[in-house]
Amino acid sequence: MFLYLGKRGDIKHMSTSLQPVGHLSPGHDLNGYIQVVNSIPVLSAEEERELAFRLHEQSDLEAARRLVMSHLRFVVHIARSYSGYGLPQADLIQEGNVGLMKAVKRFDPTQGVRLVSFAVHWIKAEIHEYVLRNWRIVKIATTKAQRKLFFNLRSAKKRLAWLNNDEVDAIAKDLDVKPEVVREMEGRLAAYDAGFDASPSEEDEQGYQAPVHFLDDGRYDPATQLEDSDWEEDSTRRLQMALEALDERSRDILQRRWLNEPKATLHELADVYGVSAERIRQLEKNAMKKIKAQIGDALVA
C-alpha cells in the first residue's frame, strides 16, 4: 500500500520512508483518502514530543512518518479553506502535505509548542505557492504586497461591486500597502484568462469574443504593405504634378504655407509680395482648388 506525500528535493529521504502506508492518494480517491487520514489516531502531547526528539536527535524517519501521518487530517482541513480558487482539492492537499513534511523536518521540540501550531505556516506557504502558480495562466501576484493582497482582498470585499475610495483606503491601511496597489490587484482579480482562438465547444455568443477575431495585426502583411507603398508613391507623384502645373507665385505660397517648417503666416507672405494678407489668402484658396482639380483629373485618367 502506498501514499504519495511529496516531491521536493529537501524532503526526498523522508517521503521515501513515508510511502509504504497505503495505496490511497488524494488524486486517486479523495473521499477514501480523507476517510483514511481521519482514522489515523491523533498523538498526545507526550507522544508528539517523544517522536520529535527521536527525529531531532537521532534522525529517526519512522518517528517522522508517525508525526506526518497523525497530522494529515489537519492538512485536509486547511486545504478545504482554499476551495474557492477553483483548483483541484486533491492538488491542494498534496501541496499541503509537502508543507507538513517540511514543517516536521524543521520542528524543534525544545520550543514548547505543538507541531500543529508550527506547521500552519509551512502548510499554507506551499498551498499559497501552488495557488499563485496555477490560478491563472499569467502569474497574478509577483511582489510581496501583491501576494498579501491576493489572499486578503477577496475576503475583505463586502460586496461584488468595485471598491469605493474609503474601502480602498481602509484595506490598504489594514494590509500596509499603497491604495494604488489595492486598485491594481482588484482589477487583476476581476480579469479572466481567454484563449486566443475560440474553443470549438464555445457557443456562438461567446466564440466571437475570442481575441483572434479582433487582434489581427495587418501592418506586416506583405500585400497590405505593398498596397500602402504604391498608394503613397502615387499620391506623391500626383501632388508633385499638380504643384508643377501652378504658376510660380501660387506654388511658392503653398510651399511656404503648408510644406515648409516653420510655416509662413499670411502677413509674412503679404510683405514678401507687396499685397494684402487677404489677397494671399485668396491666392492660396485658388491654388488649392487647382491642385484638387488636377489630382481628381489624374485619378479619372
Results as ranks from 00 to 15, higher is better:
Y192C: 08
K157Q: 13
K263T: 02
A170I: 06
G207V: 00
Q294H: 13
E284H: 09
R54S: 11
L55H: 14
A242N: 00
S15G: 01
L226F: 04
D169L: 14
A119S: 10
Q282P: 00
A287N: 09
I127A: 04
H23F: 12
W258R: 09
D271C: 09
S235K: 07
A45N: 04
N165L: 05
L30K: 07
N260P: 00
G274H: 06
I295W: 08
D193L: 13
Y82V: 02
R65Q: 10
R80G: 02
V272P: 00
K289C: 01
G99Y: 10
S155T: 11
P179S: 03
R279E: 07
L175N: 02
A64S: 06
T265C: 04
Y220L: 09
G32Q: 10
D247P: 05
P20K: 12
R281P: 03
Q206H: 03
A264R: 03
I291C: 05
D216I: 12
V113G: 03
Y85K: 07
D60F: 01
E233C: 03
Y273F: 12
L24P: 00
Q19R: 02
T110R: 14
H128C: 09
W135T: 13
K139Y: 06
A63Y: 01
S155Y: 08
Y220S: 12
K7G: 11
N165W: 14
K289W: 06
L254C: 05
Q209V: 13
S201Y: 09
L153M: 05
S39G: 13
S81R: 14
V75G: 11
G112Q: 11
S83C: 08
L72P: 00
D216V: 14
V275W: 03
L67F: 08
A141R: 09
S229Q: 15
L24D: 09
L100G: 03
E50H: 05
V36D: 02
P222Q: 02
D230I: 15
A79M: 11
H13R: 15
G9L: 12
Q294L: 01
I123S: 06
Q35T: 14
A45K: 15
H128P: 05
